[in-house]
């Protein structure tokens, strides 16, 4: 087995963060944490930037719509994986939600500078691989993978 893959199983390279729904003041703190972890690990700026952007948009979604959520970060030699799991209303029509400009945001979200139907679109654009599944009245699951072109061996 490739030693780099073993390294990815190292628990030190897995992190988990909780996000409280409705807590608008804290929105973005997880992405700031993730950004500083990835920087500390010496990942390329572009990887750090893309990871921070997708995480931030996902965080805004949890704060805006869900009761609570969890962000799981897994750093491997080749990728940054960010899973975002929330308990909330779910998305009835994912295809529609992915459309640029489609939004169900309320005034409070819009006043923060979000809720213009760009979030999932941005996440999709900045992820190298993006999966989304959702169940109405249960929650939404996002998985974003950002490739590390420089393949960091020593994390």
């Amino acid at each position: 087995m490739n030693p780099a893959v073993n390294k990815s199983e190292d628990t030190l390279n897995k992190y988990s963060f909780n996000i409280e729904g409705g807590n608008f003041n804290d929105a973005g703190t997880v992405s700031t944490r993730i950004k500083s972890i990835l920087k500390q690990k010496g990942l390329p700026n572009d990887v750090v930037r893309k990871s921070a952007i997708v995480c931030y948009e996902a965080e805004i979604n949890i704060v805006s719509y869900a009761r609570k959520g969890t962000v799981n970060l897994t750093i491997t030699a080749e990728t940054v994986e960010i899973e975002v799991i929330d308990e909330g209303p779910g998305i009835p029509d994912i295809e529609q939600a992915m459309e640029q400009g489609y939004s169900t945001a309320n005034q409070q979200i819009r006043e923060m500078g979000f809720g213009a139907g760009m979030g999932l679109h941005n996440i999709n654009s900045y992820s190298d691989k993006f999966d989304i599944t959702s169940e109405v009245n249960k929650g939404t699951f996002l998985k974003m993978i950002i490739n590390n072109p420089q393949s960091t061996k020593d994390l």
């Binding site: 608008f24 003041n25 973005g28 950004k35 931030y56 500078g113 213009a116 760009m118 654009s125």
Partner: peptide
Amino acid sequence: LMSDVLAFAKAGSLLLTGLTNAQVVQTAAT
């Protein structure tokens, strides 16, 4: 619109905005 800042702004640029909440700073940092 902070989603557009996330999508289009480039590192090292000035951000001109009329929004005044903490999300502007978070977005700028990101």
